[in-house]
Each structure stands twice: as structure tokens, then as C-alpha cells.
């Protein structure tokens, strides 16, 4: 649609050394990006979505988007955007909030985990997260099976989807998923985002469950219910994350937007 243009003369003035702005940021991500994306997360918290009932409530669409914040803004910026958005979302959609500060922490953790699922770098952060999650897994298992008499097989099956997420994060699959997300082929991006969202939200839900369990101590038979429900919900979250993430990344690659430092797409 645009006309071809003739060659232009060269600049006459001397070239200047441009010092990039050292602007206020949240973990390296420009504050404006954190603000606006947090507002998006807050709004998506208002859209309940569930393919299966989990503990009697639906989960918000925002849960599928928390990890995307990590890939767009980096670990600290992503955690801030997800956490802030979840906090504002709690006011508006309490039926999806569960325990408020857990929801906020979980959202931030999800973005943090996602920001570690990259082709290169952030190994130290990933190790710290892994240690935290491993400790939670051990304590959770002991409390459920030891103190509350839940059968070990039932516990492992109930959280099988989340243990799969832990495996994806622990093994070299973490780097492989990161490479898929940065691939120019959108089909590979979709697969990477599906697996990455599964990993990030799975670890988020596991972490939240661990803390909730110490507070609420739900009985053994509920774990049996989780065996069927949890993988379905994980699949829904991962599907949402993959569809949204692929659309967003495809769009971002096509338009000349200022790319936040720490973004990996």
C-alpha cells in the first residue's frame, strides 16, 4: 500500500553517543509495562474459566497468563505484574481467589518459574526455585502421608500433573522448552508455551496447595478427586497459555514495539 521512495541524502550533523535512559524499573522491566500488564491480569481474573470443577470453584483465565508475564518482562517484572494483577483481581473476583496472599504469591511464582524456562541464562534463579519447590514437595508429602494418613500412591497420583511439571523444570527439558518458545516457527512456539505453562502453573498450584494444606488439612478422599480433576485443569490452563501466548508473541514479532529488557520471545 505504500509508494516506493527515492534514496535520501546522508545526515549532515555529527553522530551523537546516545546514552540509553536509566529509567525507574521493577526488576529491569519498565514500570509502565508492569502497570499495564498487571491491569490486564486483573481484568482476566474477572473471567472465570473452568472445564472441570475444582474444589467447587472455577479458576480465572488470568492463571493461564501468569507465565506469559515472565516471558515478556523477565523474572522480577513478570512476578510484579502477575502478583499485582492477582492482588487487584482478588478484590473483584473473590470466588476465584482462594486464600488471597497465596493467590498473589502463586501468581508471582508462576511468572518467576516461567522466566527461568529459557534457552540460556538464569540458571542460579532456577536452582533457587527448584530447591524451594523440592523442599515443599518433601514437606507436603510427609504431612499428608505421615500426619494425615493419605496413601502415598494416592498423593503421588493426585499431584502427578504437578510432579510432571517439576520434572520438566528439573531436567534439560527446561532449556529445550525455552528454545521452542524462541523459535521462529509458531507451531513450535505453541508447543513450548503449552509445556512451559504446564510447568509454571503446575508448580504454582503445587506450591499453593502445599501452603493451603497446612492451613486447611483437607481429608484423604479429596486427594482421590484430584486425580481426575487436576490434569484436566492443568491442560486447560496450558491450552489457554499456549493460545494466548502464541497470539501475543506472533503479534509482538510483527510490530515495532519497544522490547522490554529481559523479554524472551
Amino acid at each position: 500500500m505504500t509508494d516506493p521512495e527515492t534514496p535520501l541524502p546522508a545526515p549532515l550533523g555529527p553522530e551523537r553517543t546516545v546514552k540509553l535512559l536509566d529509567s525507574a524499573s521493577v526488576g529491569g522491566a519498565p514500570v509502565a509495562y508492569v502497570i499495564v500488564l498487571a491491569a490486564v491480569v486483573a481484568v482476566l481474573s474477572f473471567i472465570p474459566f473452568s472445564v472441570a470443577l475444582s474444589a467447587g470453584s472455577s479458576f480465572p483465565m488470568a492463571q493461564g497468563v501468569y507465565p506469559l508475564m515472565g516471558w515478556l518482562l523477565g523474572p522480577a517484572g513478570g512476578a510484579a505484574a502477575s502478583g499485582l494483577g492477582a492482588l487487584v483481581g482478588i478484590f473483584l473476583a473473590p470466588h476465584t481467589a482462594g486464600i488471597p496472599w497465596l493467590t498473589v504469591g502463586g501468581a508471582a511464582l508462576s511468572a518467576l518459574v516461567a522466566a527461568c524456562i529459557v534457552a540460556r541464562g538464569r540458571g542460579t534463579l532456577a536452582l533457587a526455585v527448584l530447591l524451594l519447590l523440592a523442599a515443599e514437595a518433601v514437606l507436603f508429602y510427609r504431612h499428608a502421608t505421615g500426619a494425615n494418613g493419605v496413601r502415598p500412591a494416592v498423593f503421588l497420583l493426585a499431584y502427578g500433573a504437578h510432579f510432571a511439571a517439576l520434572a520438566l523444570f528439573l531436567l534439560p527439558t527446561r532449556r529445550w522448552i525455552g528454545r521452542l518458545i524462541e523459535s521462529p516457527d509458531l507451531r513450535r512456539v505453541w508447543i513450548g508455551l503449552f509445556l512451559g505453562t504446564w510447568c509454571a502453573t503446575g508448580l504454582m498450584m503445587f506450591s499453593e496447595s502445599f501452603v493451603s494444606y497446612y492451613l486447611l488439612n483437607w481429608p484423604g478422599p479429596l486427594f482421590v478427586m484430584f486425580i481426575g480433576v487436576v490434569p484436566l485443569e492443568q491442560a486447560a490452563r496450558s491450552g489457554i497459555g499456549a493460545v494466548i501466548g502464541t497470539g501475543v508473541i506472533a503479534g509482538l514479532r510483527s510490530i515495532a514495539l519497544l522490547k522490554p529488557p529481559g523479554a524472551r520471545y
Partner: peptide, 25 residues
Amino acid sequence: VPQLYGGRFFGRAAVAGLDTVDHPI
């Protein structure tokens, strides 16, 4: 421009006597 966007800047722009490349926004 250019401190937020980066890129290549030539010549001199000044407002109230302050060079817009050398002085922070």
C-alpha cells in the same frame, strides 16, 4: 528520542539551552 528508544541520533537539539541527548529526561 533518542534516550528512551535508542537508535542513531545526529546533530544537536537543545531546549532552554540544554542538549536533549546529554541531559537526562
